[in-house]
Amino acid sequence: MAPFSASRLALISGIAVHIIDRYAYANRIRAVDPAYKVGLALVVLILCLVLDEPMVGLLTVGWMWSLATLFAGVPGLAFGRILLTEASFLLLTTVGVAISINTKPPTATDWIWRLGPLWVSSTPEALNLGLHLVTRALGSAAAMNFVALTTPLVDIVELGRRLGVPVLLLDMMTVMYRLNFVLLDSLDRMRTAQEGRLGYSSFRCSMRSIGLLASRLFIDAFQRSQRLQKALDSRGYDQELRVLPSQYHRDPAILLAGVLVVTSQLLAWRAA
């Protein structure tokens, strides 16, 4: 079996991007004005950060999951898997906050365990801090996932245009997003071609193949950018990617959902 490699990791993340993108385009609230969706997520996220209560974080996760699945029609399992991936990274990083590992016995800690030559210790305060961190970050991540799974980049760019984000930045976002998929396709084809010639049959071969693939992909990206420039020039490009804005509808249900989420966040904070 071919060893796990950077190119395979890139392909896996590419698949994840494709999946998120598919839901963003195919959900039930795709045509709703992105300002409503992004506005709702931002208010919820800010409250989750400011109120800083585990109950508020968990409630936010619940609300965002419900809105994405019941309201937007995104499969609950897909939302859950993405959140689980984020949660696993969060838990790994929070371990360092909640637990201390030393080679010398710690002083003034409530809980101490000895594991061979190592001393593992913690305090209720450290665990509480870890809990706050995890729930706050998960709530924020859920709010962002709601946007990612219901709003394609084309709508985010359109919203950015309305908000006066510099055109150059938005154009770069558009082209990078597009090239991301084109280069992922190239990466997939190149890797398959390498695999077909035993490019990943051993660790040594894998390292060599990854190096060759990276350099080839860099050249490919450069050549593609030159061809893209020519194609844009041929259609009259003049320092700005001018395209028609999308047409959206305004959905009061999103506003109602926003009021409900915010009220429940505030009630949970008061109760805590």
Binding site: L153, T174, D185, V243
Partner: peptide, 17 residues
């Protein structure tokens, strides 16, 4: 065509010219 299509949506790409 991948050298030519730059936009995130078909309609927007056609509207560029």
């Amino acid at each position: 065509p991948d050298d030519q299509l730059f936009s995130t949506s078909v309609g927007q790409d056609i509207s560029f010219g």
